[in-house]
Amino acid sequence: MTVLLQADNIAKHFGGIRALKDVSLTINAGEIYGLIGPNGAGKTTFFNVITGLYQRDGGDIVFAGQPLHVESPHEVTQAGIARTFQNIRLFAEMSALENVMVGRHLRSKGSVIGAMLRTPAVRAEEAAIKTKALELLAYVGIAGKAEVRAASLSYGDQRRLEIARALATEPKLLALDEPAAGMNATETAGLRALIEKVRADGTTVLLIEHDVKLIMGLCDRVAVLDYGEKIAEDVPAVVQKDPRVVSAYLGVPYEQ
């Protein structure tokens, strides 16, 4: 099994608050890796550090055999990590198709001069971007909504569109920040099928989630964060019974 992402002793603090205390974890290629923990445990902070939105205060990340220098998020995306956001961040006034087409920005290279002259190469590239974007919309199951404004899509479709946009960057690792938040049971089941399909097609998935049933059913391995520290990392069945995890979620039994 090859390691896709290795994070060693990641630290991040905001002023005096240590949001992440030397968190280390390893994500293998081809797995669905869950990251759980109570509210405020540092899951999203860890996410933002991995994806370059925050600068880490310590630690090393090796991604796909290369040290990951995260100066800016677009470099992380270039390296092959794509993400979605906890509060959906779509380009609200662009159509669904255009949203995914923006995701192709990184994997296309038409220059400003080329765009002005509309050279055959630029036209061909533009057509390819559109074809690929339409394919991705079909892949996540919203092919019929290509021309719909992103803000007008239903909540579940917005989540799917965000995944399509992330997949458009051709990631090796797809990082999803609470994709099932606010979804009903049917939508969650659909999402689960989609995540499994993404993994089956060769993309590793990192998942933050509160829906324990989803995590336990879907993930190959799970890490648990509590107060910025990793307290467990194993297959779901083991993590579920770990006394530290139980006490992090439910508290320590009262002793007389």
Partner: peptide, 9 residues
């Protein structure tokens, strides 16, 4: 922020 995450410099 989303534009950056989409890989736009």
């Amino acid at each position: 922020i989303a534009a950056k995450a989409c890989g736009i410099n």
